[in-house]
């Protein structure tokens, strides 16, 4: 069954810089999925488990986080902390009998890079395969 997913992306200020390029139109021009709602945060290390869970409560079918490379975070360990919290949410979803793949962490280079769009497409495809959130 095909459906239009709602995906929430929390991305750090540094890895989502291209969202600002061309007055915000560049991502769309590069084919970034329209199903993804981008929330920019100063550092993914500030994200709490509750923030990610709230996104599911607010209706997201999938949630993912994009932060700096694990060994090159602008704030030293921010993206590593984020990855730990994403893992905690994944474990909690699985405890509730929900696919852990509905939440993901990506470490990407800062600035303008095609991987940012590729991972968006990857997440969009994954959530379309999984179907609507059971919540």
């Amino acid at each position: 069954m095909s459906f239009d997913p709602a995906i929430t992306l929390f991305s750090c200020h540094y890895t989502s810089q291209q969202s600002c390029a061309e007055e915000g139109n560049e991502l769309e021009q590069l084919g970034f999925p329209s199903s993804i709602r981008l929330v920019r945060v100063p550092c993914t290390g500030k994200l709490q488990v509750t923030t990610l869970l709230q996104a599911f409560e607010d209706g997201a079918d999938g949630v993912y986080v994009v932060g700096c490379p694990a060994d090159g975070c602008h704030n030293v360990k921010g993206s590593v902390r984020a990855a730990k919290r994403v893992a905690a949410v994944r474990a909690a979803l699985e405890e509730l009998g929900v696919e852990g793949g509905r939440v993901e962490m990506y470490h990407l280079p800062r600035g303008l890079h095609p991987e940012f769009v590729e991972k968006g497409k990857e997440m969009d495809g994954r959530i379309r395969d999984l179907g609507p959130s059971p919540f």
């Binding site: 488990v49 509750t50 409560e57 405890e95 929900v98 059971p134 919540f135």
Partner: peptide, 17 residues
């Protein structure tokens, strides 16, 4: 308090499921 907030969210999600 932090864990209680997380648990509250998980209870709501689990019940909704």
């Amino acid at each position: 308090e932090r864990e209680a907030e997380i648990l509250s969210s998980l209870i709501r999600l689990g019940m909704k499921k």
